[in-house]
Amino acid sequence: MTDAIIVEHLHKTFKTKVKGGGFAASVRSLFNPEYKTTRAVDNISFRIPRGQLVGFIGPNGAGKSTTIKMLTGILYPDQHANLTVSVLGMTPWIERKKLAYRIGTVFGQRSQLWMHLPPQDSFDLFAAIYSIPEDTYRKRLKHLVETFEIQDLLTTPVRKLSLGQRMRCELVAALLHDPEVLYLDEPSIGLDILAKKALRDHIKRINAQGVTVLLTSHDLDDIEEVCDRVIIINSGHIVHDSSFDELRKSYLQKKLITVHKRKQAKRLELQGVHIAHDDKDVTKLVVDTKVTDIHTVLSAVAAHYAIDDIEIADPPIEEVIEEIYRRSA
């Protein structure tokens, strides 16, 4: 299988002006500005074969978005002797416009749709931008509209759509020109549980059609549901790169269960289960799945509490990274 993305020795530093608070600091900064250098991406290397769905995760400020923006050609990396970056055989920042025809992007925090116009108008514009022949465009749009179930949204101004509805339209916009690589930068940010679930299903469907997907998120659940492989980045470094199963076996032996109760109950006593919080309405349990498997715990929880609602989650990404560092130390 050939590689869609090759990254070797990628670096990016940003220089930002720093200034203390107050008027005197402002005056000092005027005549003697001070700068802080931030290593947003610090010597990372990885390869992504064609058709793979890779989760690129890390906490805020880890360097995920900066990496994606260098892979689209928007940002120039720092020049480095051994630097090699190739996306579909092209160097992104040199062949940015040529590459743009073959990649799709969705930035969760920045819409590419025109807010006051209905999505149909944005789609027509993208067809013109990507020089899609009229006939191909009509067929492809029809297919995408059916796949993403946005028939009823086509004529509603984007600003009136919910976040989940808008995200489905963003995906359609990113896929109109049939890209071979799709970058999804925090697409699930701000979505509710149902919208997240629908989005994950759509991402899986896109990948099943052979599109290489690089998905950034700081939500491990996003990655667990859809990705073949997970790359964890922190402070500009890759700290882990494996399949999700391996990550789970190595680092995700804990599950967090939140039980919303209808009535007060005695403390649940079970091996491998630690009660992190308990009041009359909510109990939070931390389960060590090495000691007791999750099915046993859930059965015990169901029998023990009068459940109103229940949530199961992985530990936050920060805890996983902490654990990775702890073990490597």
């Binding site: 923006k69 689209t72 050609g73 928007i74 940015r96 416009k97 040529k98 743009a100 025809y101 990649i103 992007t105 930035f107 925090q109 920045r110 819409s111 590419q112 931008i129 990507y130």
Partner: peptide, 14 residues
């Protein structure tokens, strides 16, 4: 300032 330049520059135009 908002970073919207990234969206514009990811398109195949000047």
């Amino acid at each position: 300032q908002t970073g919207a330049v990234a969206t514009a520059m990811s398109k195949p135009y000047s």
